[in-house]
Write a protein that binds this DNA or RNA. Structure first.
Lengths: 242, 242
DNA sequence: CAGTGGTCTAGACCACCAT
DNA sequence: TGGTGGTCTAGACCACTGC
């Protein structure tokens, strides 16, 4: 019995998609959890299975959920090996894998105008700044500096990061419930400052790839600003254009 | 004792997708043309409309076809304004738009080992090399060098390019029937060589963003190798991570 | 107005996974 | 074996476009 649909601004599958995102943002299902089956969700939202399926298609394409045939639909976690390099596009020319992390510092300060604007904070709101190096084959190749609103990452210290073996995004997810969903990056070539040169073991003025990233959690909320300096002598930033 | 599982053939919608790509590669529909309606295609392939629709969903997501509600489904063309910057991710910090093109040279030579490998040619097969500059606000910001197999671009000369007002990819499409579908890029920061420095009006050694692109036409056939040097002082390469 | 893609429903069967 | 997502079908109605 096809019910006559009332006029609505967004299609039903889009409304359902947004409801699921809202539920994820509210923590109804955490990373690693299975979502209810598509049939159960169809019941919950009063839609047909095909419509819920369409919503899940969109969410799977955005990597907001992950399907496993026969098992169910799950909330992806940055702890999974597959997610390891989802936001780090720097690959070795010879396809070597993996980095080792070296924490340089973690301190609390007031948001600069730039950080405040990017993260949607009031100026001089408390912010946590993290600096670190990534090494490949014993050589530093990435110098990362990143800023987080303290109110979302209360208790983040050098200690906490040192104890955590995985990626930062995996830590943010398990410890602070902040799951990164997508990011925007601006790339430039810049000359190494004396400080960056020393840390990356290159000469001052050496060309470095500057990667400025704004990362978003559910609902397009910006939660991290990051500035990376990549030494691209035997590594490159890989991109795919469609 | 488990019975040997026969290899499952690709799903019907995937087979249909490939048949449509093959028809596009064969030139059955040219850029700007409308494809047959989904109902007509369903008839042609002996599938239900929903299955054909699924195939078109995939093709639309890859930008291999473009849907216009109420009008039909079309082959996109690089001549359309929307496609103008599909493969050029360099944007001005102040969002200014547009470039002016300056052709530096176009000559015929034999494929280097690197070009041959990238384009799948025999070494020393004839290749066309194009060099040009892109200017923004009267200032050079991109130095492009690109290589094409001559057998796919016979008759491409400086004259032909000078007469054509649009982008290179629009020219390739209308004049040579080669439509670019996707590309892979490798980015690095490099120091300007004396020659590049002079052309881009910067000091030798200045950091430049090196963008090496391999562009593909239908069926993942590589047809263009390109090396761009971007001056990223008041422009940046924009990327989106999902 | 006719024709197109866009949405939504309903249900059958298959492939895969855990138990 | 039961439950899950994956495929495929069939058809209704809506929204938009162009004549």
């Amino acid at each position: 019995m096809p019910p006559s649909k009332p006029r609505s601004p967004a299609p039903l599958y889009e409304q359902i998609r947004q409801l699921i995102v809202a539920a994820l943002a509210a923590g109804e299902w955490r990373p690693g959890d299975a979502l209810p089956s598509e049939a159960a969700l169809a019941q919950r939202f009063g839609a047909s299975p095909g419509t819920v399926r369409r919503a899940m298609d969109e969410l799977a394409a955005e990597h907001i959920v992950e399907r496993r045939q026969g098992s169910g639909t799950f909330v992806p976690t940055h702890a999974a090996p597959r997610q390891q390099f989802r936001f780090l596009r720097l690959v070795a020319d010879d396809e070597a894998e993996g980095f080792t992390r070296e924490l340089l510092g973690c301190r609390r300060l007031r948001a600069s105008a730039e950080v405040a604007r990017a993260l949607g904070l009031r100026t001089s709101e408390p912010v946590i700044e993290v600096r670190r190096l990534l090494h490949r084959r014993g050589r530093p190749v990435v110098l990362d500096e990143l800023w987080l609103a303290e109110r979302h990452f209360e208790g983040l210290t050098a200690e906490v990061m040192a104890r955590h073996p995985g990626t930062l995004y995996a830590l943010f997810e398990t410890r602070f419930g902040v799951h990164m969903v997508r990011a925007e990056e601006k790339l430039r070539a810049v000359a190494a400052t004396p400080e960056a040169a020393q840390l990356l073991q290159v000469s001052p003025g050496e060309p470095l790839l500057s990667v400025e990233r704004l990362a978003f959690t559910y609902g397009d909320r910006p939660v991290e600003l990051r500035r990376g300096l990549y030494y691209t002598s035997s590594d490159h930033y890989r991109n795919e254009l469609n």
